[in-house]
Design a protein around this nucleic acid. Sequence first.
DNA 1: CTCCTCTGTTGAGTTATTATCAACATACCG
DNA 2: CGGTATGTTGATAATAACTCAACAGAGGAG
Lengths: 299, 299
Amino acid sequence: MDRIDAMRAFVQVVQEGSFTQAANRLDTSPQLVSKYVSQLEQRLGVRLLNRTTRRVNLTEAGEGYYQSALQVLADIEDMESQLGDLQADARGTLRISAPVSFAIHHMAPLLSAFQQAHPGVKVDLQLNDRKVDIVEEGFDIALRIGHLRSSSLIAKRIAPVRVVLCASPDYLQRHGTPEQPMDLIDHHYLHYSYMDPGLGGSALKCLQRNRQPLSMVSNNGDVLVAAAMSGAGIALQPTFIAGAAIRKAQLQVVLPDYEPEPMALYAVYAHRQLLASKVRSFIDFIDGYFGDPPYWDEF
Amino acid sequence: MDRIDAMRAFVQVVQEGSFTQAANRLDTSPQLVSKYVSQLEQRLGVRLLNRTTRRVNLTEAGEGYYQSALQVLADIEDMESQLGDLQADARGTLRISAPVSFAIHHMAPLLSAFQQAHPGVKVDLQLNDRKVDIVEEGFDIALRIGHLRSSSLIAKRIAPVRVVLCASPDYLQRHGTPEQPMDLIDHHYLHYSYMDPGLGGSALKCLQRNRQPLSMVSNNGDVLVAAAMSGAGIALQPTFIAGAAIRKAQLQVVLPDYEPEPMALYAVYAHRQLLASKVRSFIDFIDGYFGDPPYWDEF
DNA sequence: CTCCTCTGTTGAGTTATTATCAACATACCG
DNA sequence: CGGTATGTTGATAATAACTCAACAGAGGAG
């Protein structure tokens, strides 16, 4: 017996003044209503209703219980409908973690459009290049770049992330344009701290054996791309950072034939079922938003 | 699944931060707690908890639900403990219906003693010689005199009610003391309106064939007994009214060998099970209170 | 890094509970 | 004084509950 249903049955009987009518209202049988009330009384150890075959009267205990039960049922109703609304309308705050550079370049228009489509959702965007613990830190979604290792989390592939070697035209003019991976060994390498060491490609291997003492390290791709644009060396960076400069010929792709396997941008979230609709909406929204290939790859 | 138990399980998990500990607290198995929460989520259509094997975190929906659920559970707790107290301490208002004359003569000390024993119980004593509808009019107990016809009500026999013919000594001196029932025909009969016509006894039969035009009728026994004491005639009245006067020799029993079958005083109430303890207490209290034979019969 | 333990979850099988049907008892109504 | 409507009660079939065992992940220790 569900005690809430039993309470509801009792309240309905009081309001209708009859077991049978209460049963009709609740779409069940009078027998059930009778049993529900009986069991409720049994459980509480008090008689709630004095029943004649013709009329139903509240006992003193029943009177008190009725008042409280009304309140409790209304509270439960509120509670559940609140959740329902939250579910239906996509409301609440959506906490997103995203890679710093990617977010800076490409999240603003997306978020703006998303919020226009779902005015009830507030977005809390945290920029972070380390791997956040999505449940521990209370994120609904984390955007991540890389090859995802399996885990209990769900990862939805949002867009490919091409990584290219690039340098400014004047740098290449001064130091020569590499024709073979081996040629990179003597170049200035602008090194990204978090670069996945497992990332394949013979070009990268050569870069890692780089002999130049003047190479630069940063944990921020924008800095490295900016450095490359001002002729500091060759950077291995995703196209979502370097793409614009390449299109404007401020940077030039080096060794395009040796481009590493593309990685991808993933939206990572905790569960596949019973997803809050704010999360579901965002996933649906970002999926395909950047195009395929993404607009930043058009150069 | 009982939704209240499910809510309790969920709340406990939130408070303990662990399914296993919550299960211990609730004296059940972790599997059950897990299922309860799952089914709650299923039912609500929202994920309430993000669970790692090591830690449990509330979702936004879960946060809201937790707050509301706490409130609801507290309300239910209150509600039930209120009933429990009512049950344990015998509190509330006890509505009693009683026969007018009986109550006037014998209820005052009883009620006073009862209230001393159960200070939480207020008594609402309604005097009424008609047969009240106990459930319709909201009485907890009705005291009634007579032979009870069967019904859905419970009737507990409290005391025998002897009915005697009596008259004042001076009346008998003036009109003669009847020796046989037939002698009553020519006497002044003080007639009680509600006297059960089915009441046996040859004496009564003779009274009903009474030929005296001066006989008197009332629906109140006290009036009739008072009339008899002042020599107005012979009254057929219960000993709980006439007993005191008989003991003081202000009245004299007539035809004691033809006394009708004794009736009884019954306490009538609606149910045998799940009786409010104020009712139970009163029944226990009044049972045997008047003695056997009752004190008013000692003359 | 690897093993080990702890935790939450899942699936199968047994046990209890539930819902439904029919029958019954009782109060009101003409 | 039947007839109808109402609440209740038992018996049976269906359903859900609970328990046991096994599994999968996540931390922590060595």
